[in-house]
Nucleic acid binder design. Structure first.
Length: 421
DNA sequence: TCTGGGGTCCTAGGACCC
DNA sequence: TCTGGGGTCCTAGGACCC
């Protein structure tokens, strides 16, 4: 019988922060999104205080202060490096791993299905704990969707003690009948509302829906989901990472921008970062979209959403070419008199650099590749933004805020924690 | 009054995920 | 004053073809 496990780190970003700062243990902690805008990770204590995922921090400031909630800026360098360590620990217990997100992996345990799987995954959880200090929960089921349900049950219901195994049909039925349909993986707001009008409120009811009806309510996506809830796999554990389709670098500004040159500065920085990201994946892009817009939350203020798409030919991963394309887009779309709060670069039509179509006019290409390599080496060694184009400007008031970011504990030699005897 | 029957490709937008 | 960033997949509809 197929056995798929989903291992998920508890309160992941907070757990990463706690690994290096014991003063965060046992107190309410939240990690803020970029620009210190929203709460995107909460400790159990913070959840108990009613802090919701995505709550704007400035709207709950009073409550945070009253209860002494620690608010940290996000530190993705740390979370990314910790993920690598978590995956390494999991790998000792299974070869087939699909890294689903920064804090979740699917693991195919079918080859071990004759063993006591609960004991097996508890060994895995212990290993992750020992190597990283991070607590996890595991759900086991015959399909990925059921493993997801199992994982949520393991987290919510203390009865499971961190591991829920839904391979047994009776236990599975018991859990599904009590599981809100809106919490099922793949059921969002819109679908949940439609299901509600049909009287479908639990995962058990969704499982029992007619396929035809499921397709009508949703699309093939919902149809597959029903099959998965019935125990029929519609999606396999994907060990190899699929070819990326798009890539983006977008940021909200620390302060609104009203001036074209300032916007160019921000866009220049994002274009440079986008190029770096492309090269690190060995890709080139065929399309670049640049956008910028005003604050959509302030409906009483004048709004402007601007976006321009530029074709890149030849296809490119050259930051300076991306920058030039982005500048053209911004110039074409710029309108005076607005307070812009966010901008971004999106890249599409991605192709591995060795598979890109050649053109007749690449005489300079070798030198440009060497220039980009040198740029990446300098910025890799001496820190991001060591070498930047003048277009990024010197007055960068728009740079996002991050008032309380933890050190790069594990990735910068001058920031590793020091233990004193 | 009558006005074919297929295809393909592309894009925009919706819905969803963490 | 202060509201994240980065992805995927699917469908409908238009443009175009024979």
């Amino acid at each position: 019988m197929t056995a798929i496990a989903l291992i998920d780190c508890n309160n992941y970003y907070v757990s990463c922060e706690r690994a290096f700062d014991s003063s965060l243990v046992g107190v309410p902690v939240i990690v803020a999104s970029n620009n210190d805008g929203c709460a995107i990770a909460r400790s159990q204590e913070a959840k108990a205080l009613g802090v919701k995922m995505g709550d704007p921090i400035h709207l709950i400031r009073d409550r945070l202060d009253k209860h002494g909630v620690r608010v940290l800026s996000s530190n993705y360098t740390l979370y990314g490096d910790m993920q690598r360590r978590v995956v390494a620990a999991v790998e000792e217990f299974a070869s087939e791993i699909e890294i689903y997100s920064i804090d979740e992996s699917f693991v195919d345990l079918t080859p071990f299905a004759d063993r006591d799987l609960v004991a097996h995954v508890n060994g895995m959880r212990d290993q992750v704990r020992r190597w990283t200090t991070i607590p996890t929960c595991v759900g086991i089921g015959p399909t990925k969707t059921l493993a997801k349900v199992a994982n949520a049950a393991a987290k919510k219901n203390p009865l499971f003690d961190g591991v829920a195994d839904l391979r047994d049909a009776v236990i599975r039925g018991f859990v599904l009948d009590r599981f809100p349909v809106c919490d099922v993986w793949g059921v969002g707001r819109a679908t949940a509302a439609k299901l509600m009008t049909l009287g479908v409120t639990t995962a058990g009811q969704l499982r029992d829906m007619q396929m035809k009806q499921a397709r009508g309510v949703g699309t093939v996506v919902l149809e597959r989901l029903v099959a998965e809830l019935q125990g029929v796999a519609a999606s396999a554990v994907e060990v190899v990472e699929p070819q990326r389709r798009g890539m983006a670098v977008t940021r909200s500004f620390g302060l609104p921008i009203r001036d074209l040159e300032q916007l160019m500065g921000a866009v220049a920085q994002y274009a440079m970062r986008a190029g770096e990201k492309l090269r690190s994946h060995g890709l080139v892009a065929g399309q670049l979209t640049v956008f910028f817009h005003t604050n959509p939350h302030k409906r009483d203020r004048p709004q402007h959403h601007a976006s321009r798409r530029v074709t890149l030919h030849p296809m490119s991963a050259d930051s300076l070419e991306l920058l030039a394309a982005a500048r053209r887009g911004v110039e074409a779309a710029w309108r005076d008199g607005f307070a812009y709060t966010k901008a971004g670069i999106m890249l599409d039509d991605l192709v591995a650099v060795e598979l890109r179509p050649r053109t007749l006019f690449e005489c300079d290409a070798e030198r440009r590749v060497r220039l980009m390599t040198a740029l990446d080496e300098v910025n890799g060694r001496f820190g991001r933004f060591t070498a930047v184009p003048a277009a990024q400007g010197f007055n960068r008031g728009w740079q996002a805020r991050a008032d309380s970011r933890s050190p790069a504990w594990t990735t910068r030699i001058d920031e590793v924690p020091v233990v004193r005897a």
